[in-house]
Amino acid sequence: MSAREIAGRTALYAVLAAVTVLVCFPLIWAFFTSMKPKEEIFLWPPTLWPETWTLENYRALLEGRDAYFQAGAASGTAVPPSAFFLDWFVNSLIVTTGTTVISTAVSTLAAYSLTRFRFPGQRAVPYLALIGYMVPSIIFVFPMFLVMVEFRLTDTLLSLILGYVCITLPFCMWLMWAFFRGVPIEIEEAALVDGASRLRVFWEIVLPTASPGIVAAAIFTLIVSWNDYLFGRVFMNSMENLPLTVGVMHFFDGTHVDWGLMMASSVLMTVPMALLFMLLQRHLVAGFGAGAVKG
């Protein structure tokens, strides 16, 4: 490469590195703050790099329940919010996994039927689904809450799963519909002529071909259901059933904020999704790109 090309690439990488640091700075600040003891968090002027490194904030989150039952339960003290952190984390995992499985499976089957079978109103369904996704979720949450009350599903993880499916399914179906339109139907017809059943064609040919779109829909559902606050705040009441996004708000106690626990919980909430996104970002880009072009 010439000196000009080397200088251009160096400048490009420098700009990208600066933008990356700027975008990731809140998470970097949260991580270093979570590694500080409580008295150092409020030092002025504030410092990024901890003078004393400690894991007490993470220990309080991960061992909070055991510590409470060993020390506080016998004396009848109130249960601290940190004692429920692992419960909140497991709840979010269950809700996110259930929502992703249901939304991805239903949207895949629905999109396949829209592109392979004929029925009245076939062309209008994808666009109606997209319009449903464009409506703000806050409009749905209170009617859905009344439905959950009627079926006695409030304060259950199932209510969150159903709520998140309602807001993620329309977009996932539209995405998969756009993707299946680009999958050549001749491949399936050749397999059907050779004697394969429709189910076998779908399982062995269509699903592997559509895997980038399925991964893209799954990642979208994961992000929405993991980060949502509104449904968890309205549907859930008991501390042990809260998702992470709602549970960590209990670290705010009036005018007092436990910034150490807040920053540690923010890191533990963000890192799993960030790692998952980095591992699957190629599939996400491929899925959105393939669904945008009708081949």
Rank of each mutant, 00 (worst) to 15 (best):
S2P: 04
R4T: 12
R4V: 09
E5V: 11
I6L: 13
I6M: 07
R9A: 08
L16T: 08
V19K: 02
V19L: 15
V23D: 08
F32R: 02
K36W: 06
K38Y: 08
E39Y: 11
I41Q: 05
W44I: 06
E51N: 13
Y58T: 04
A60W: 03
L61D: 08
G64D: 05
G64C: 01
G64Y: 04
Q70N: 14
A71G: 12
A71N: 15
A71D: 11
G76V: 09
A78T: 11
P81K: 11
P81M: 09
P81T: 07
S82N: 15
A83N: 10
F84H: 12
L86Q: 10
L86E: 07
D87F: 12
V90G: 02
V95F: 02
T97H: 01
G98H: 04
I102G: 05
A105S: 15
A105R: 00
R118I: 06
R118N: 13
A124F: 08
V125M: 09
I131E: 04
G132Q: 06
G132L: 10
Y133H: 14
M134S: 13
S137I: 05
F140C: 03
M144R: 14
V147M: 15
V149H: 03
E150C: 00
E150A: 12
E150F: 11
R152H: 13
T154E: 02
D155R: 04
T156S: 15
L157P: 03
Y164S: 02
Y164K: 05
I167R: 02
T168M: 04
F171W: 13
C172L: 06
C172V: 02
M173I: 10
L175I: 07
A178H: 10
F179T: 11
F180S: 09
R181H: 06
V183T: 13
P184G: 04
I187E: 02
A191D: 06
V193I: 15
V193T: 12
A196W: 10
R198W: 08
L199T: 14
V201L: 05
V201M: 13
V206Q: 06
P208M: 03
T209M: 14
S211E: 05
G213P: 09
I214S: 04
V215W: 00
V215F: 08
A217Q: 04
F220S: 00
V224T: 14
S225L: 06
N227P: 06
Y229W: 15
F231P: 02
F231I: 02
G232L: 05
F235N: 02
S238M: 07
M239E: 15
E240C: 00
N241V: 02
N241L: 08
N241T: 09
L244Q: 03
G247C: 04
V248I: 15
V248C: 03
T255L: 11
D258S: 12
G260D: 08
S265Y: 07
L268I: 14
M269P: 00
L279V: 13
L280W: 04
Q281W: 00
Q281P: 01
H283F: 14
A286D: 14
G287Q: 10
A290T: 07
G291N: 11
A292E: 09
G295S: 14
